Simulated assay, not measured.
Amino acid sequence: MPLFLDKNLKNIHEKIRNNLRLSFEDGLNLLKTQDLLGLGYLASLVKENLHSKKVYYVFNQHVNYSNICLNLCKFCAFGKPPEHPDAYELDIEEIIKKLKKNPSPVREIHIVGGLNPRLPYEYYLDLLKTIKKEFPLAQIKAFTCVEIEHLARLAQKSIEEVLKDLKSAGLSCLPGGGAEVFSERIRKKLCPEKISGKRWLEIARTAHKLGIPTNATMLYGHLETYEERIEHLIALRQLQDETKGFLCFIPLPFLPQKSYLKREVAPTTGFEDLKMMAVARLMLDNIPHIKAYWVFLGLKLAQVALHFGADDLHGTVYEEKISDFSGAEGDKALSRKEIERLIREAGFEPVERDALYRPV
């Protein structure tokens, strides 16, 4: 029997041993605990029951096609108005040139950007078609639920019609961005122009029903409460019960360094980041994968997160720009050799995957 410093963890351990779902109150107790090692033990137990010693990664390249954005959320340092000196948009030819400069064979091309009112609907379809033609073996993970809503407005089509168009053009799955925290209170304060949490879930549900799997995220460590974090996780869990369409959950620590909140909010600590990783693994009992997104966490903390419930270290991440604008420090791309070394040194078995978590 493990030694827990927090008696609440003893009760939660019993639930886990008996395959019982954790409650809202359990989630709050997990977030409030100071027994980090006890919490890590529980998350590692669940993770290894699901994946043994396997840790997944993907050989991937990012495309941030434009940072021009209508929403200009207060927590975001990436989005810029059109007249800003740092605003940019890439044409399709530029994107293909950038992709061809990086190592191959790429397994996943990850595409996200701002809500740019100047790019027509056809740009997005042509982008997918061109990438699919140039990189036929790569899967395209593209456009958050927020971007899908933007495309529907551009084209004056339904969400279902837009997703069908994108799928025909080469889309394999959606990334999980734009979820932030579903709390209406938080969204009114930080991103009033963005779609609601309810709408984000509706779009994800539609994608799942069309056979398009998605990821899911939560941006934590700004103005949200612990209660709002757990409500967010339970909302994802409920949708997953219904659709089985989520592949992975990614907890994203807020990087305030270059945002409008830099004077109000301090960066999250390693203690909080590891705690959030573990709580995600324990609460999301029906989402198969939890990702330690090393671009935001840093390589060293991401390694430790593999002992706190994470079973995915994302990937090689060529050409990612959002973290640069947000103030993230450290490496911006990894080789296959480097990422496998990180996984092995942490005591796990590296497994290269594709965008749908199929081993390659």
Rank of each mutant, 00 (worst) to 15 (best):
2 P>H: 15
7 K>F: 04
10 K>G: 02
15 K>G: 10
16 I>Y: 05
21 R>Y: 08
25 E>T: 07
25 E>W: 07
27 G>Y: 00
29 N>C: 14
37 L>Q: 04
39 L>N: 00
41 Y>I: 03
46 V>I: 14
53 K>F: 05
62 H>M: 14
63 V>H: 01
70 L>Y: 11
72 L>A: 12
76 C>E: 06
80 K>T: 06
92 I>W: 07
97 K>R: 15
103 P>S: 06
109 I>T: 10
110 H>T: 10
135 F>W: 09
139 Q>H: 11
141 K>F: 07
148 I>Y: 01
164 K>R: 13
168 S>G: 04
185 R>T: 01
185 R>W: 00
187 R>D: 00
187 R>E: 01
190 L>I: 09
191 C>M: 04
206 T>L: 06
209 K>D: 08
211 G>E: 02
215 N>V: 06
215 N>G: 05
215 N>A: 09
228 E>W: 01
231 E>Q: 08
232 H>N: 11
239 L>K: 13
241 D>T: 12
257 Q>W: 12
265 V>H: 08
267 P>F: 06
271 F>G: 08
282 L>Y: 04
289 H>N: 15
293 Y>C: 14
299 L>Q: 13
308 F>Q: 08
312 D>F: 00
318 Y>D: 07
318 Y>C: 10
330 G>T: 02
336 R>M: 05
342 L>R: 05
